[in-house]
Amino acid sequence: MIKVVHYINQFYGGIGGEEKADVKPEVREGVVGPGMALKGALGKDAEIVATIICGDSYFNENIEEATEEILKMVKSYEPDLFIAGPAFNAGRYGVACGTICKAVKDNLNIPVVSGMYPENPGADMFKKDIYIVETANSATGMRKAIPVMAKLALKLAKKEEIGPPAEEGYIARGVRKNIFREERGSKRAVDMLVAKLKGEPFVTEYPMPDFDKVAPNPPVLDMKNAKIALVTSGGIVPKGNPDRIEASSASKYGKYDIEGVMDLTQETHETAHGGYDPVYANEDPDRVLPVDVLRELEQEGVIGELHRYFYSTVGNGTSVANSKKYASAIAKELVADGVQAVILTST
């Protein structure tokens, strides 16, 4: 019998939503939440002996301590296999799943599997270290993700040979394998080119890695005369959310005038973000967008001026493509307005 320990967050553990995202790790015997479906998919050869539940914010704010605590819990069950998630496109959950999977693999030397949407930051961080099954971006993809995760996990536990990413359903780990092909490389290359010219589908044998790094810009030399702008993915908007920016998967960003505004208060502003506990930001929006202290620094002459507008969107499940689109539109305006530096805050 293959002994399995499963890791999930506070939401899937049934403890609560964002208001409970700060709960510490706890362990429960047997299956919880998505573990039920996982149990079914794993079948008779494996048993989920325990489920570890941890709040996403607690994990991400205390990565080292949380990892250590959870590792201890996992160890006490002496499992043969560890499964985390699936986390879909939940960023903090993905980081937690990836971090703990890698720690379990490195320390206990047992196979680990997680599941994420490719845009989850946890996928980029850990795809080279662990097997991460590619999932949809939300929990609606649960039914599809679980069987693929279970199948891959069982194969790993039984030390069976693992096929390429497309076949097994995991995110490519950047591993290259030598294989023999019937046709030589030159012919395959020409065939590919011909297919491309004809507009037919073809599969590259060497996908180019995505090296999209942007080099840092030179620093601000004269801060006393610089115009500084505030941008946030933390969803701060004027009270009432006039542009109706969505709580998750935002379809837009907002541009808001703060001329003469010295302080953001619960009467004037709030957060539209649905991916963190909004209590603190609604009580005092400066906790996410520090307008009050920038006004002080403006008066003290530390900075030249605070730009008249701030820009805001909700970075909760929002696609990378949309985030790029919003930010590049925002950046264009900031350049045109002569802004010399930006403070971008995230929650």
Partner: peptide, 29 residues
């Protein structure tokens, strides 16, 4: 978002709690 602002030529600092995510998305400061 930080990357697009940096790309446009404006220096940008990212204030965020989960530093590994910021490193992954490519913030420089």
């Amino acid at each position: 978002m930080v990357k697009e602002i940096e790309r446009a030529g404006i220096p940008v600092v990212h204030i965020c709690t989960v530093v590994p995510i910021s490193l992954t998305v490519g913030a420089n400061r």
